Amino acid sequence: MYTNWDDLRLFLAVAREETLSGAGKVLRLDPATVGRRMQRLEAALQATLFAKSPQGYSLTDAGAALLSRAETAERAMRSAIAELPDTTDRLTGQIRIGAPDGSANYLLPQVCAAISDDNPDLDIQIVALPRVFNLSRREADMAIAVSAPTAGRLVVQKITEYHLHLAASEAYLAAHPPIQSASDLKHHRLVGYIPDMIFDRELDYLGDLGITRVPLASNSVSVQINWIRQGGGVGVAHDFSIPAMPGVRRILIDQISLTRAFYLIRHTDDQRNPRLSRFAQALSTGLRAEVARLEGLA
């Protein structure tokens, strides 16, 4: 039986990323080193684990069989580490959070900075991507989402609700016809998501308002916010982002208001990991407080 866990860890990274370069980034190793280690593993097992093509590395039947066993070993390793006694009150090591870019830009920096102040030996990584994170592939230790997943071996915790309103810059409003009701929006340039790139139904803000044409569209909240701030048009903005945009104000507040929620998603295997649980608690508490603070300033 092959028992070199370090080689199995590299094998898992290649299987999940499907390229040596992707695995190298995850492992912080040179891709050539990862390739040599995979050749050594295949030689030790006397089996071809990957079919190599210009598109990347895909698992052979032997590789798929090893993947199942390697993931079992990974879960056992994580469980064993989680059960080690905690000898310090401070968090250490590295924790990676996946998040949609709205929360990643306007909430997580200050919340994680506060956690870092209390835990100076902890390395926190925020991965901001406009898509759902795959925790089973270990893309992150935990993720923030705007809807609760219903499939997979995941633990889901609602963190807090947040609010969104239409917003525009004072310069834009001064240069264009007044907006007194939702019907007036047809005379204005709208900012929003690219319709076919909305990765979560909860993000279809303009669709909820019956708006189908979006002249200025991006898959990034940050780009949308900058368009609004620069006077590009009218868009839906998180209330917690408004304090970061001088010269921008909410409009039609009493007529149009959206409520959404953030959820913290963790892999089931990490439930007994006290380190990740302590971080998750600090993260959730900090996010609730920061949303409340910023919405109070909007």
Rank of each mutant, 00 (worst) to 15 (best):
I225H: 06
R229C: 05
L185S: 00
L190E: 00
A217Q: 11
P195D: 08
G231V: 01
P177C: 13
R189V: 07
G231S: 01
G152E: 05
S222Q: 11
D200Q: 15
D204L: 13
V156Q: 00
S183T: 15
Q230K: 12
D184K: 05
G210Q: 02
D200E: 15
S169G: 12
Y162W: 08
V221Q: 10
A182P: 03
S183V: 14
L216A: 04
L185C: 00
S222N: 08
S218K: 02
P149T: 02
L173F: 13
A171R: 15
P177T: 11
L166P: 14
A171S: 07
I211S: 01
V146D: 07
I159F: 04
H163S: 08
G231A: 07
H163I: 00
Y193F: 13
G231D: 12
D184P: 03
R153D: 09
N226E: 13
V214H: 01
D200L: 11
I179C: 05
Y193S: 12
R153G: 03
P215R: 01
P177V: 11
E161M: 03
Q224P: 06
Q230E: 12
P178A: 09
V223M: 09
A217I: 09
V191G: 03
G152N: 01
S169L: 03
I228P: 06
R213K: 11
P178E: 03
L203A: 14
A168E: 12
S181Q: 11
L203T: 13
P178M: 03
P195Y: 10
S183I: 12
S222G: 05
L164C: 11
D184A: 07
L216H: 06
N219L: 04
L166Q: 07
P178K: 01
G192I: 10
A151E: 13
P215Q: 03
E170S: 13
S220W: 13
T150Y: 11
H188Q: 02
S218Y: 09
L154T: 06
T212C: 14
R201Y: 14
G152F: 03
R153W: 01
P215S: 01
S218Q: 09
V155P: 07
H176P: 04
N226Q: 09
P215D: 01
H188A: 02
G192Y: 01
E202C: 14
G210T: 04
A167K: 03
L209Q: 04
I198H: 06
A168F: 12
D196G: 06
R213A: 03
V146F: 11
T150R: 13
G192V: 06
D204K: 04
R153Q: 11
A182G: 15
A171C: 10
I225T: 09
A167I: 06
I198E: 02
I179H: 05
V221A: 02
V191N: 04
V156S: 00
P177N: 08
I198F: 08
V146Y: 14
E170I: 15
T160C: 02
S222A: 08
V191E: 02
Y205V: 15
T212G: 12
E161C: 10
Q230M: 02
R201I: 15
I225Y: 02
N226R: 07
Y172H: 14
